[in-house]
Nucleic acid binder design. Structure first.
Lengths: 191, 191
DNA sequence: CCTACCGATCGGTAGG
DNA sequence: CCTACCGATCGGTAGG
């Protein structure tokens, strides 16, 4: 019971931190802001977390984990390349709609991670990129997709998907999904 | 002569600030960092600029001005909608290749602008967005483009273009231009 | 979880 | 353009 309450309070603080880091930026947000937000004195925050960097680490690595798991499920199926891209679009939207603040921080503030966590983060990201590009290249080899540089197209798609976080407030998930799928699918299509 | 030297030194400081803000983020970059970078004592920086916020303002508004001017030239021609989109892609790439640090700061750090400048910035941005969307809607009405939500497509294209800043180091302008034009053009195409 | 507090760093000024 | 310095704020700790 005590432990369950403590985990819960920690999670409340992490979620509040995600909101705060999203609104003000990691460096501009202070532990004092956070304390006010959760109704504690600044020093009491440290009963639940080790450091400000720890908060950022929990937020960013939590999202990274979700992407890693989602990608593992998608790349291990026998869907067509085009279907896999569609599933990846859905994955990004699902994570965004689940916790908008966290994914925004994951997206915009990861560079402030402390070195050791940053290394881990970059490994997961590199892995994700590798698997994403593999799907693009397979589609190209099968004659389904048409483009010159896999790297450019990958980055453009990732940016497109990461914009969708801004669309979460304005559109239903289905609207975003349909428009993004159609846009990207056309973009990859052979003329 | 004196005046010319002073303007020049101010510009050196602004350019160094753009580099610094790009590398560390506006909030994490200090005037002391900047002073070291240009070989001055921290307080001497203030002989050339009024405040740290002023540096950010000069960088962001400088870029905003370039986009505003570029858009004015493009939208006042009688090019086709598709040609106009192509010209906008070129505009973004030109500005990015001209000063990568500035456009990155413009893109990622504008939210730290002081209120009065922020208002001005948002007006220019809103205006740019309005004219960009008008081109998209005209293309749609003429049956050249196919999509549901102008707003979503606009934002996706803008994000795609803003990724290109990351591609500046790795690709030639022509490669990026060709790949982005082809990607976006396909994305907008009627099936 | 709070009171009390610390050392470090920040943007910026005074005065020359 | 520098020396000297200031008030504010920061992340975080000691001790209860």
């Amino acid at each position: 019971m005590m432990i369950a309450e403590k985990i819960s309070k920690k999670q409340i603080i992490i979620n509040a931190a995600a909101d705060l880091f999203k609104d003000k930026g990691y460096k501009a947000a202070s532990i004092r802001d956070l304390a006010t937000k959760v109704g504690l004195e600044p020093s009491s925050i440290y009963s639940h977390i080790k450091s400000k960097e720890d908060l950022l680490s929990e937020i960013c690595m939590g999202c990274a984990q979700k992407f890693t798991e989602g990608m593992a499920q998608i790349s291990n199926t026998d869907m067509s390349s085009r279907k896999k891209i569609g599933a990846l679009i859905t994955l990004h939207l699902d994570i965004a709609f689940e916790n908008l603040a966290s994914i925004t921080v994951f997206n915009d503030e990861w560079r402030y991670l402390p070195d050791s966590v940053l290394n881990e983060f970059l490994i997961l990201r590199k892995d994700y990129e590798k698997q994403f590009k593999k799907i693009l290249m397979e589609g190209k080899e099968e004659g389904k997709f048409e483009f010159q540089h896999t790297d450019i197209v990958f980055n453009v798609i990732i940016k497109t998907l990461s914009w969708s976080y801004a669309g979460v407030k304005k559109y239903k998930k289905e609207e975003l999904q349909q428009e993004l799928t159609s846009f990207i699918s056309n973009a990859l299509h052979k003329n």
